[in-house]
Structure formats: C-alpha cells, structure tokens
Nucleic acid binder design. Structure first.
Length: 511
RNA sequence: GGCGCCAUGGUGUAAUUGGUUAACACGCCGCCCUCUCAAGGCGGAGAGUUCGGGUUCGAUCCCCGAUGGCGCUACCA
C-alpha cells in the first residue's frame, strides 16, 4: 500500500500535571474526530518527563475526563499496542540509543557551555536586536576534544546541529510555514542531567509511533522547525501538521483559571452534559460545510469533520452558547439519565438522600421526575436546579414577606381578600388539593373578590411558593401535595401547610 | 528586541477556491403564548469584511505594507 493510502495515525499527548483543560480537550477531540472520520488510529501518550510535576492521580483524572467526553484511544495506557510503552518515563532507554546515533553521525554535538555563558549571550543578542540563538561556541569542537572533556567528567548537554537551510513544514490549517535557519537556535536535546528534553522526546515518539498527522495547539508552531530538523537529522519524513488556534477568554487573553472554570472536570461538576461540551468545542474553531448547522451528534461530527475546515484564528470561549447547547441537550436527553445526574445535586443540597445508599422508593423516583420537569427547561446547568427548586423544600414566609416586589404585590387592595378567601377554602377542604380543585377555587375567588389575572394569582403564588414567579400551578400543586406525603430528608410542605404558615406569619407581625 | 501565527456584526462560524441585498447560530431587542419567570413560536436591529496601497472589468477572497492581538524566544512542558 502506498504511504499516502495508509490509515492516518494521530495522538493526543498531554502531560499529567493538572486537570484536563478545555483547550486541550478540544485538541484531543479534533484528533479523535479526525481519526474516526478517516478510519485511522488515535493514540494517547502520557508526557511525563517532567517528573516533579507529573502525578499519577492527574493521569487517572485525564483518562477519566477523556472517556467522559467519549474520547477513547486505540493505543495508549490500558490499551497496549505495537508501540508500547505509551508513557515517556518508560521510554528513556529508547531516547538514549537515538541520541548516541546522532552524536556518532555528527548531527548532534556536546555543548559544555555554562548557564552563565548562555545568559550572557542572550543579553548580547537582545542588545544587538538580533535573534536570541545559541552562538555555536561548542558546535565545532573536534571529536577528540569533545570526547576527552566528556570522559574527564565535564558536564555537557547535547545539542542538535540546525541545518544550513530554511526549515519549512506543511500545516493543514495554515499552509506552508517557513523559518529562516538563522532564527532557530541549535536546540538542546538532552540536558546535562541526562534527561532528554520535551521537544526531542515528542518528536522521537511521534516518529517511532508512526504518527502521520500532528494535531496540536498553535503554541507549538515555533517549536516545529526544531522538530522538523530532528526528523531530518534521522532521515525521517516529517508528518503533516495541523496547529489549532488558542481558545481565549472574553478579554481576549488566553483562557485560564482567571476566567473561572476551565477544566473538563469542573464542567462535569457543574452539570454540563458531555454531548453539549463536545458539540460546543467542535464548533469552536471548526465549521461544517455550508456553516448553517450548529447541532451535531457525535456520529454527525465524525461524519462531517475535516481538518481542512478548521479555522486558523483564535476563538473566544462563549458561555452563553455553551449554555444554549447544554439546555438543548438537557431537554433532548433521556429523562431518567438526567434525573439520575440531577439527583446528586439535590442530595448535596440535603434535599434528597444520597442515591447510592439505597435505591430510592419508586414513588420518590417518580415524584422527583415530575419535580425536575418543572425546573429543567430554564436550567443552563444541572447545578442550578436545587436553588431553583429550593422553595419546594424550604418554605420561608418571613423572607417572602420581606421581599420588596412581593410586598408591593401583597399591598394591593384585593390581595388580602384573595388570600383570605383562598385560606378559607383550604381550611374547609379535606384531603389533598388537586389542580382541578385549585382551578375551581380560583374561579370562585375571582367572582367573589373581583380580582383577576395578576391580582388574583400573584398573592396566592407568593403565599405558596414565596415568590411571584415560578412554575405553572397545574404542575406545581401536585408536586407539592404528593411531595408532602413522601419520606424525604426534608419534609416538603403541602399547600395547606404553606398557606397556614404564610397567613400565620402575616398575623405574627411579619411586617 | 527577534521570529512566527492570526484578523468577517458583541461572540462562534458561512460565503460555488474573485461576481452574494455578506448567510446561519448564540446573545440582544420586540411581539405572541401566559397569573409570573423561564421555555417555545414569530419578527427586528446589528458587520460592508482592521487600516492603507496594489493586481483585476470586478475583491471578504490574491500580493505588499501598517496596526492590533496572540504565541515562541529555557538545560519548562
């Protein structure tokens, strides 16, 4: 099979030094989509050469986050393949062999310069308005000299000899990118400590793992000429590159913790659905042909995604649009799945018992489903739900009275009459209140007091919910009434209890 | 300072690889629905494509320059 027809191999290579950031998640997603679209392979490689900052728990978290997004890998930790191992810390021997080869072939050389010398050089270059590249002091040391100093125990780093011609590469999203060779410094490949450097290791791994397309953030563009030179030094064919633009915050600064939640884990905790985040991230820097569609399932993305349509310009992260998508998927999702997810937020608020303690009574389950239906349409994220539904669990007449808007609505001439009439009917009524009963009462009160519309409903709404706005009575009343019959960590008050407490609080001098 | 990348309404993207009244979505505004807030439905405002040159009969699109933003400039990743 000609090389061009071989299935592509791509990789996502995060360093396990923290949480998976949305920017990296997008990079992972684009890699994954490209692989799935083309029938290629997607590998996960852990870049843990920074021993001080790398942690196993971060690596675990990383993998969990990827899987949560539905991004699975064909080769990588846990799925050992032909190019194992997939952790750089386990590949150190491989790197050493290759360095020896470069040294032997004169493609790389030992550099004995001290940090002080290098700093001095950099200062001079800056002062002379010239590129800050290594002077090449050790470039032409004779082999004998170099070997002698090394065997004498003098510490050295290994540098790559940058070739004498411009370094260019092809970038699928940007076209041909070229760097004059005099602007690229002979890069250090191996530190004097013996530890290989990131840029060297990635390149070696990419080549050895037969990566055909390197899709990564555009902060690596300036590293690419050095990497291209490494490919060249070994006589390997460089891969195709695709550098993705940066995701910015609303202030056009690179998106960071300063902008609030940016890790995939935090999105999950907030109650953003993975399908919403995937859809959003796909849209942030890519547009389907025609550009008029916004809603894409995972399968549709795989079908439509093409690297050629990725945008080169940076994109600003827009919560409003993510929320719009999340609302959409919250409504589109299987209600049972949403109920299960939402449950934990209510449990955390102390409104419901933790779900894993015992499987909840079917009655509670069904009731919770109806409760959710009341508030879900207006929720951007699942974690907003308990606050929206709080009045169901915690009814507070005093606060309701204290609210200025409520007070104004209760100060009308008709409000006290309406409330008295309503309270009287509830008091005279045995058993629970159903929506039909409620409707009948409201009609009677309308005739009796002459109040209608807002004047009629608002006082009652305040008396029952503590607020002048909220879900429709038709659906709300059964939820309140049925909830009051259930065994819950917090007793849900029924309509009767609410109106009694509310009227009592008026008498008790709530004002 | 040097090198590189980028530039279409507030935001994300389109525009048969030079010919459009510059399209779609989010957001915003208004209307409808409704006791209310959302949701939902309908409609509207908002860019002449950062600026200046050039090529062309004709540039969002090609070339040059400027400006601005961002990145890299480590024995960090």
């Amino acid at each position: 099979m000609p090389p061009s027809l071989q299935p592509p191999r791509v990789r996502f290579a995060p360093s396990p030094t923290g949480f998976l950031h949305v920017g990296n998640a997008r990079t992972a997603l684009y890699n994954w989509l490209f692989a799935r679209h083309t029938g290629g392979a997607f590998l996960l490689r852990i870049e843990d050469t920074d021993l001080d900052r790398s942690e196993v728990r971060h690596e675990k978290q990383l993998m969990e986050d990827l899987l949560w997004l539905g991004i699975d890998w064909d080769e990588g930790p846990g799925v050992e393949g032909p190019h194992a191992p997939y952790r750089q810390s386990e590949r150190l021997g491989i790197y050493r062999e290759h360095t020896d080869r470069l040294l032997a072939e004169g493609k790389a050389y030992r550099c004995f310069c001290t940090t002080e010398q290098l700093e001095e050089e950099r200062r001079e270059a800056a002062a002379a308005h010239k590129p800050q590249v290594y002077s090449g002091r050790c470039r032409n040391l004779s082999d004998a000299d170099s070997a002698a100093r090394a065997s004498r125990g003098e510490p050295f780093a290994v540098r790559l000899r940058i070739p004498d011609h411009p370094l260019r590469f092809h970038d699928i999203v940007r076209g041909v990118v070229e760097f004059p060779n005099e602007t690229v410094s002979d890069p250090i490949l191996v530190r004097s400590s013996g530890m290989p450097v990131y840029n060297y290791v990635v390149t070696l791994d990419d080549a050895l793992m037969e990566i055909t397309h390197v899709i990564r953030g555009d902060d690596h563009i300036s590293n690419t000429p050095k990497q291209v030179a490494i490919y060249e030094a070994f006589g390997w064919k460089p891969p195709e590159f695709a550098h993705l633009s940066t995701i910015l915050g609303s202030d056009r600064e690179r998106l960071s913790k300063r902008h609030g939640a940016t890790s995939v884990a935090s999105f999950r905790e907030m109650g953003i659905l993975p399908e919403a985040l995937v859809n959003y991230l796909a849209l942030l820097g890519w547009g389907a042909e025609g550009g008029t569609r916004e809603l894409f399932s995972r399968e549709e993305l795989v079908k439509e995604f093409r690297l050629e349509r990725v945008t080169a310009s940076p994109a600003i992260f827009d919560w409003e649009k993510l929320h719009w998508l999340n609302r959409h998927y919250l409504k589109a999702a299987d209600p049972e799945r949403i109920a299960e997810l939402a449950w934990s937020y209510f449990a955390a608020a102390g409104f419901l018992a933790p779900r894993d303690e015992a499987s909840p009574a079917a009655a509670v389950d069904a009731w919770f489903g109806r409760l959710l239906a009341l508030f879900l349409p207006s929720a951007n994220q699942l974690d907003e739900l308990p606050a929206k539904a709080a009045f169901v669990f915690r009814f507070d007449p005093a606060t309701a009275h204290a609210n200025d808007e409520n007070a104004a609505l209760l100060a009308t001439e008709s409000a006290p009459k309406v409330l008295a009439a309503f309270a009287a009917r509830v008091a005279a009524h045995a058993g629970s209140v159903n929506p039909e009963q409620f409707k009948t009462w409201m009609n009677e009160i309308k005739v009796e007091t002459g109040a209608k519309g807002k004047d009629l409903f608002h006082p009652v709404r305040i008396a029952i919910t503590g607020s002048h706005s909220g879900p429709e009575f038709d659906k709300l009343i059964p939820v309140l009434e049925d909830g009051s019959q259930l065994e819950l960590p917090v007793h849900v008050l029924g309509v009767r209890e609410r109106i009694e407490q509310f009227m009592g609080s008026v008498m008790g001098g709530g004002q």
